[in-house]
Simulated assay, not measured.
Amino acid sequence: MLKPVVRSVFLPGLCLAALLASTPLALAHEFWIEPEKYQVNSDESLTAGLRNGQLFKGARLPYFDHRIRRFDIVQGGEVTPYTGRMGDMPALVLNNLAPGLLIALHETSPDLITYKSWEKFAAFAEAQGFDDIQARHQARGLPEAGFGEYYTRHAKLLVAVDHGAGADRAFGLETEFVALQNPYTLTLPSDGSPTMMLVQLLYQGAPRVHAQVELFERAPDDSVQRQLLQTNDSGIVQVPVRAQRRYLLNAVVLRPVTAAQPLPPAQEDAKAVWQTLWASLVFATP
């Protein structure tokens, strides 16, 4: 059985630029792909930015190939690697669009953050649903300061081209959301009441069960509401969606750094003891 939403936060549509300017990007939370338009015609161009921030508001990042492990575009079931120009902003510009559901996939290279205090790491971990982090940390005999975590981002975007028909599927990201229903072809009530859309969360190709999922809903007036959901025994979460909204889903894997997940060579001496893998999915409803 799915657990009910345990908390929601309503945020007015204010710009968070001042907050983000004073917060290093490594400390900001979600990473996602955000298009200028979620529904485009096939004779138009699609432009989308890489975003890093909090609460569905964030800084736009340029295209830098050394920060990218994978960047693919899926049209008509065909997966094509995407290559931009260094420094491009927005990072994604596509022409020659094919009618149907267009999917963009993005995985980042590992990056590192070092915690000078236990409190910051604990607050982050607990916010992502890992209430047992202190016991796990202490059981490994780890220090409470001066340790590192390295992280990767695993983002997916769904865009409707013309009719937007088509289906999402798993594409082999180490962790990823799979929309089991196409949000652009759902029949949604015009009175603003929600419809449950099924989304599955995967980790290493298998369903990730009983995992926390953050849902951010942006309304037409640009206000954002956050809810906490949880996957069921099949890794599926019921996402309440309403017409004319934009959505971001976020979920984090927190695992120990072991010999099975070695650090990149440049970071071997960074004392990283934890790794996080962030999955995101972005889409809109007509």
Rank of each mutant, 00 (worst) to 15 (best):
M196I: 13
F171N: 06
G166M: 09
A279N: 03
L20H: 15
L25T: 12
K156T: 02
G129C: 12
Q230N: 13
L50E: 03
D131G: 15
V79I: 11
A155V: 02
G146I: 09
L102P: 04
H66S: 09
P189K: 12
G100P: 10
L105H: 05
W274K: 07
M196H: 07
K156I: 00
T152S: 11
Q225F: 07
S190C: 02
D132Q: 06
Q244V: 03
F56L: 15
C15K: 09
P81N: 01
L249K: 02
V252Q: 09
Y150V: 08
L94M: 07
V239H: 03
R226T: 13
G87D: 06
R245Q: 10
Y82P: 08
F71I: 06
Q275N: 05
L2Y: 14
K156F: 00
L201M: 08
A211Q: 15
T47D: 08
N96Y: 02
Q244W: 06
G164V: 04
P265D: 14
K116L: 15
G205L: 06
D168P: 06
A167R: 13
K57I: 03
D269E: 14
Q181S: 10
Q204F: 00
F31T: 11
K271I: 09
L229R: 09
Q227F: 11
R136H: 04
T114P: 00
R226C: 01
V159H: 07
E30F: 10
Q75F: 01
I33M: 02
R69P: 01
S109W: 01
N182M: 03
H210M: 13
F283G: 01
L94P: 05
L11P: 03
R245E: 02
H29D: 15
D168M: 06
P207T: 08
